[in-house]
Simulated scan of single mutants.
Amino acid sequence: MTDIQTIDRLRRIGWRGDTLPANGRRLARVVAQHRAGYELHDGDHLFGAQPAGYFLKRGLDPSERPAVGDFVEIEEGKPPHIVTVLPRRTTLSRAAAGERYERQLIATNIDYVLVLTGLDGDFNPARIERYLSLTEGSGAQPVVLLSKLDIRDDAQELLDALAARLPAGTPVHAINGKDPSSVAMLSSYLGPGDSAVLVGSSGAGKSTLTNTLLGRERMATGAVREHDSRGRHTTTHRALLELPSGGCLIDTPGMRELKLTGDENLDLFADIETLAESCRFADCGHGSEPGCAVQAALDSGELSHDRWRNYLKLRDEREEQAATLEARLRRQRGGRPPVRPHGQRGARERD
């Protein structure tokens, strides 16, 4: 097989490069990770592989290990071994659960993050904002999908209200994940060579939507609890799937904890930041200070109290995570915290 044929084959699974490794190694994409090793795809075949010893070193940053979506170089053997993770063009990650700070990769080399939320009890605009905040900086475009369209008569009202709350231009679609005609519009995000990751809570309908996109029942589905619309984890691990549309979809287990990494800019709330810059005092606490533009917007209804509270929650979490990350990096460097000058915090009017 010629290099051109090999590259064309790899493009079917999302490869964007124009060259192949010059060392004779084989190129493949990670489609799943298990306790016993990895599943890879080379554009033609699915096969198992083991990580090289380097990736098993204790203390290695988890982000340096192969993740679902990665393109990797393989050395042939029985079994083949992953020896190199190629540079990632996009990366979606979150902070892992628990007290110890650790970044967990969700998916790499993706073009779109499909945020799926049910129009039942799962619907939560604050959680959607959290997903979109995590997507910032990933390099991928977020697309919000509201599933279970068939159970709501007021779906358009919810759609309009959510669209008004999110930044202009954020794609928001209401769909019935069981109906192929309803999800046909997603083909614009899942065309040949495109890669998307599907995220959302358990019971939101990820497996149902995946089956409809595949055109067959591949993923197990389950019922949700009536009192909170939550489901069991029918998807147990991340997996990259080839779709009839030509794109690749990474399905993920339901995520009940979405911790920010500390790197987020919270551009989602740029309007609130702009309001804060209009306050009379540069160090305004947005409480009872005179000339507070944020409080004026809250009083007038220009800014909703729910969105303001969620912004404060995410901002504080982001800053806490950023401080934790900095402390960890400082310990690794064996350095000391920088000395910061102490200044008085007074009511300073803007120039």
Rank of each mutant, 00 (worst) to 15 (best):
T210A: 15
T274I: 12
S202K: 01
T235D: 08
T252H: 03
S245D: 08
V224Y: 01
V294N: 00
H286K: 06
R218F: 09
R216V: 14
D267W: 08
L209H: 02
Q295H: 12
D271K: 04
T210Q: 00
R225W: 05
T208C: 06
D271Y: 03
R230D: 09
R230P: 05
L298T: 14
I272C: 03
T210Y: 04
L260W: 03
T208Y: 02
T208P: 03
R256Q: 14
G262M: 05
R216H: 15
S288W: 08
S207R: 00
G222D: 11
L258A: 08
S278K: 11
A297T: 12
F269A: 03
G287T: 14
D251M: 00
L275G: 01
D263W: 05
L249K: 01
V224D: 03
M219S: 13
A296D: 14
D271F: 05
P290Y: 06
A270W: 06
F281C: 08
C292K: 00
R256V: 08
D283E: 13
L243G: 07
D263G: 09
L275Q: 03
T236R: 12
E264L: 10
R238T: 13
R232T: 15
T212C: 04
E289F: 04
E289G: 08
I250Q: 00
T261F: 05
E273S: 12
L249H: 02
T274V: 13
S278W: 01
E226A: 14
A223C: 09
T234C: 07
T212E: 02
A276N: 11
C284F: 11
V294H: 03
C292H: 00
L249M: 10
H286P: 10
V294W: 00
S229R: 02
C279A: 13
C284I: 08
T212K: 00
E277K: 15
I250L: 06
I272V: 11
T208F: 04
H227D: 15
F281K: 02
G287P: 05
A293F: 03
A296Y: 04
Q295F: 09
L260R: 02
C279S: 07
P253G: 05
G205F: 02
T212W: 00
D263P: 01
R238I: 07
F281R: 01
L243P: 06
R218W: 06
T234L: 06
C248A: 14
G291C: 07
N211T: 10
E277N: 14
K206H: 08
G231I: 03
R256L: 09
C248H: 04
V224R: 01
N211S: 09
N265K: 13
A296N: 09
R256E: 11
G285W: 11
R216K: 13
